[in-house]
Design a protein around this nucleic acid. Structure first.
Lengths: 185, 185
DNA sequence: GGCCGAAACTTGACACTGTCAAACAAACCC
DNA sequence: GGGTTTGTTTGACAGTGTCAAGTTTCGGCC
């Protein structure tokens, strides 16, 4: 992993680019191969198959996702609420900008979520959130963490980050307002 | 719609069955056609294409989803909290039992969410939730509704209904506990 | 009754997909 | 230098969605 195989890496980046341009449907072994300048069967060698490529992309996506949360958190004002809200902002900014990757990470059926590398990155995501919650609970509190995690994830997947929400034409409320409802005042 | 075309209906039901048995990957125009006992191109005639079939299935799924929420709500104790919690229970029970349909309704890329019939059913779902929220807010409150809707949707899509959650091996907290955090005490 | 037109299908083709087996090349080790 | 592993290509296969063109079937109308 530290010793990157050039073709393997090029295939992952090609896949990310395809995902960004054309959505989940656009990611194809053959297209990624063509874009990386290799033959159509090269991806099947480096990854076990389409599932393997998608898993590899999801792992890299999670790393960027974690970085987005940390960056926004560190840029926020130094209060527990602002830091937690910052994490959520990073979360939602990533979803807004990288919807294809987000879909792969959390909801695509064909990625191996038991892959050890995948688990490392996704566990790290949860631990970032958990650390952001700790000041409010004085330790691990599954209920509070679950509520924040569920709310931000639901907010994102329901499309509240876009202009038009699941409801009618009303503008969605900013997530910060929802968060205030959950955080003990 | 009231005048059901038999083949069209059979194709939808075949698709639902495929989805239940083999997940989203198993739903295929040709397989649905085979199961309905018609030729491989029959679906393309009744629906515009795969997208059309998936949209039709999603519409039917939403109707059942709405029924699940209403049933659970009506079976709950007659307090505002229990009725809202009942709606959420119906929501989560549907996800637990019909994961394939749920995926189609909310997250599948290839369904036409601007379809008028689809909008009718999905709006009805939101209005059920909204009615459940009203006793707490004394009217429409986008923030409160958004928080409940996001939380239950996130709880479901993060896999909290299964034994193993996104976190480590800990058991996920029951949704009722999360809800209590959001509802004004 | 007979016809006609539309609707419900079928048949056949096309391009595209993932996957696999076999071959080939290059590097590396002993 | 020979042999093995690794990276990569070529070619094939079954399966997919979609389209064009036929074929059946059925309902209404003269």
């Amino acid at each position: 992993m530290t010793h990157e195989i050039p073709t393997r890496d090029a295939l992952i980046e090609a896949g990310i680019a395809l995902l960004a341009e054309g959505g989940p449907e656009a990611l194809t072994l053959r297209r990624a191969a063509a874009r990386a300048g290799v033959s159509h069967a090269a991806p099947a060698h480096h990854f076990k198959g389409l599932r393997g490529l998608q898993t590899a992309i999801a792992i890299r996506a999670f790393a960027r996702f974690n970085r987005a949360m940390e960056t926004h958190r560190d840029a926020a004002a130094d209060t527990p609420f602002d830091r937690l809200a910052g994490i959520c902002d990073g979360y939602l900014a990533f979803v807004d900008g990288q919807l294809g990757l987000f879909h792969l990470m959390f909801t695509a059926a064909d990625v191996d979520r038991d892959d050890p590398e995948f688990c490392v990155e996704s566990d790290r995501a949860y631990s970032i959130l958990r650390a952001g919650c700790a000041p409010f609970t004085g330790g691990a509190d599954l209920v509070f963490e679950g509520a924040v995690w569920s709310a931000v994830h639901g907010y994102a997947t329901l499309g509240f980050t876009q202009k038009r929400g699941q409801a009618g034409g009303e503008n969605p409320p900013p997530f910060r307002d929802l968060l205030r409802l959950i955080v003990p005042s």
